[in-house]
Design a protein around this nucleic acid. Sequence first.
DNA 1: TATAGGACCTACAGCAGCTATAGGTTCAAG
DNA 2: CTTGAACCTATAGCTGCTGTAGGTCCTATA
Lengths: 154, 154
Amino acid sequence: MLSIGTLAKRTGTKVQTIRYYEQIGLMPEPGRSEGGQRRYDDAGLDRLAFIRHSRQLGFSLDAIRELLTLSDSPERSCAQVDAVAQRQLKEVEARIARLEALRSELHRMISECSADRVADCRILEVLRDHEECLSDHEKPHSLNTGPGMLEKVM
Amino acid sequence: MLSIGTLAKRTGTKVQTIRYYEQIGLMPEPGRSEGGQRRYDDAGLDRLAFIRHSRQLGFSLDAIRELLTLSDSPERSCAQVDAVAQRQLKEVEARIARLEALRSELHRMISECSADRVADCRILEVLRDHEECLSDHEKPHSLNTGPGMLEKVM
DNA sequence: TATAGGACCTACAGCAGCTATAGGTTCAAG
DNA sequence: CTTGAACCTATAGCTGCTGTAGGTCCTATA
């Protein structure tokens, strides 16, 4: 039986994080010692390792919840598992594309600036005036589509 | 003079977001109408446009605060502006690198799975067992370096 | 067996960067 | 003058943790 601290060390997780996972129902409530301290078995260790590894691959806690539920019915088709992973891949790819657009915009902005004084700084000019941008990130004047028009970028 | 709603529309910002920026001191307190409603002038519009555009390029609110302060002294050297932008570029590049590692890991995982049943699903196996990973994302068993071992990935 | 001091407990506040709600007031078009 | 959209403040919520305070337990050593 493992204490929470040992479990934390073994999985590279903070103790509070484990308690947090329990709180939100991602980790089941473990047994307790006489004095009321948490005691984990191998199942707990495996589950936490699964969660942490999934997090490292960028899955959200909700996606992980889904994966954990799916993996509890071994006879089911794994098509849904596939779908979750595909969705994650798509999200990662979308994010990469967005960041690459940012990168080139930033790069261009920086390379254009050869001023000494803030007054002539191209970087600030570009930031002030959207029209100087080449990329297609939303122009303020266009009516924006849907909620959260400034979608997560970093 | 613009109402907050008009300003919001013109810059593609939510009304609450503008009030939030005011609350954290990023936007100055504007004048008010007789009845106490916010009224903005062109300076406010410009400032908000600057903030929003910088956000679209991924700058943090703190970085934006810095840029705004710098742009207030036009005679200064723009080296610091350059530094802020460079830092941002570096961050974007680091993020891209990290996401590309994730992408290939996810891709490999997905392509390896040809199972029907959850019981044999490679995706779940990989998630369960870190050793199956090729990439260098932190192994749980290695003592991790510094705080926040699971650094922002998405 | 006593004790010291680490590891554990709960509960709650805080981070970024917003977004949403409730319950009330003001503005402007008709 | 009325009506209803837009505004106001205040507060809570989102994700995924992290940190703190103030207290209890466990275990190695003397």
